[in-house]
Design a protein around this nucleic acid. Structure first.
Lengths: 213, 213
DNA sequence: TAGATTGTTAATCGATTAACAATC
DNA sequence: TAGATTGTTAATCGATTAACAATC
């Protein structure tokens, strides 16, 4: 594992893709993978693959053989912090929020959603996939009781910033924002990551436009 | 509008963020915005904002005033192709798929979902928010009848590639892939965009790790 | 061994940043 | 006018790509 001096955001974005591919490969029974082969699957170059993997992995690949898939999966998970499970809460149990609450996939990325919050009386008190839904009024109380530091925000745009502020005040240091608005925090120690379907749509749309010229 | 010779993916990814901010600003009643102010909201530099906006906009900003918000919104929408509504289908009406079907937000990005597909007999024939759910058996037939070119893939990983192949064979040229696996197409004219919650989670996790050192 | 694959070092390419004259 | 803001041109920075010796 090299000194992770300066890694570009693009590079970090690639690791989950490696992870997906490697996990798929593992299922097929493969034990090793070479960078040229992996590069093809990643739609990138073998040089880039090697550089990327060198950053996260302590051991090196063997000529003619490649790298061990299990080891790589573990290295990437460790590097991204997906290995040690982290508890998180989810605010906004609407369509999307509920789908996310039910979604098992977060576990494979080290995130464990322990509770949901909403202001809709008809669902407060319910459990969704074993996870309790609390009133947003209890946000501060539960954050401190549960001791969570990560929140997933799936509220309407209109209240996203307000809720984000409350989350931060209550001790949250990382927010994954699905709400369709850009939020911010005065506290620069807080990490906010915007997740937006539109950016994928923008890329798709743009590439299709280029194609049609 | 300049010759859009070579625009980086990062740059394209920024436009939906501009769009979100500008739409928010418009709601507050603002009519103009300067690049220094917009830069602050974007967490970037005024130079970059100016360059980005110059690429998509034919008219220029006025010193002391900035740029017209309505104009910018329109320019970005046009540039990204969000202006002319495009029909799309959605395959896989599970938790997420159904949430996406119900989601109104796609409209503001120029995408109009006209139908869903699933293999679950208990929901085939239903309508979700006015959109019919067909059997996947009818995929090819409906694609040709509806004349759609874009598909949103929300199936389990295990069948994603198989469905993607069928979509492409039936005439689809753009796929937005939410399935948790990387898909590809032999047809290099087909544009596939992977949407992965994990990449956001990876960035969040990595930034938090950096913070804690 | 021969050759595929490796890791590293150097070259290129491109995006971001800085500087500055122009302008409302 | 004065000054904020503009667009453009040049400088810097960093990531990607290419080249190559090392090795299983």
């Amino acid at each position: 594992m090299k000194e992770q001096s300066n890694i570009s955001l693009n590079q970090i974005r690639r690791y989950p893709v490696y992870l997906k591919i490697l996990r798929d490969l593992k299922k097929t029974g493969e034990t090793h993978i070479s960078s040229p082969v992996l590069a093809k699957m990643m739609n990138s170059s073998e040089e880039q693959v090697r550089k990327d993997l060198q950053v996260v992995s302590k051991d090196s690949g063997k000529p003619k053989v490649g790298r061990n898939i299990d080891g790589l999966i573990n290295d990437i998970e460790t590097f991204l912090g997906f290995n040690n499970d982290t508890d998180a809460i989810l605010v906004g149990c609407g369509q999307f929020g509920t789908a996310l609450l039910r979604y098992d996939g977060f576990k494979s990325y080290g995130l464990n959603i322990v509770a949901g919050f909403d202001n809709n009386q008809s669902i407060i008190g319910n459990t969704i996939k074993g996870k309790p839904v609390y009133s947003v009024d209890e946000l501060e109380k539960q954050i401190s009781e549960l001791g969570v530091k990560i929140a997933i925000l799936v509220t309407p745009a209109s209240v996203a910033q307000e809720i984000a502020d409350r989350l931060v005040d209550a001790g949250v240091i990382g927010i994954l924002n699905f709400a369709p608005t850009v939020i911010s925090s005065k506290n620069e120690n807080v990490v906010i990551e915007e997740i937006d379907i539109a950016s994928g749509l923008a890329l798709l749309s743009h590439k299709l436009n280029l194609r049609n010229r």
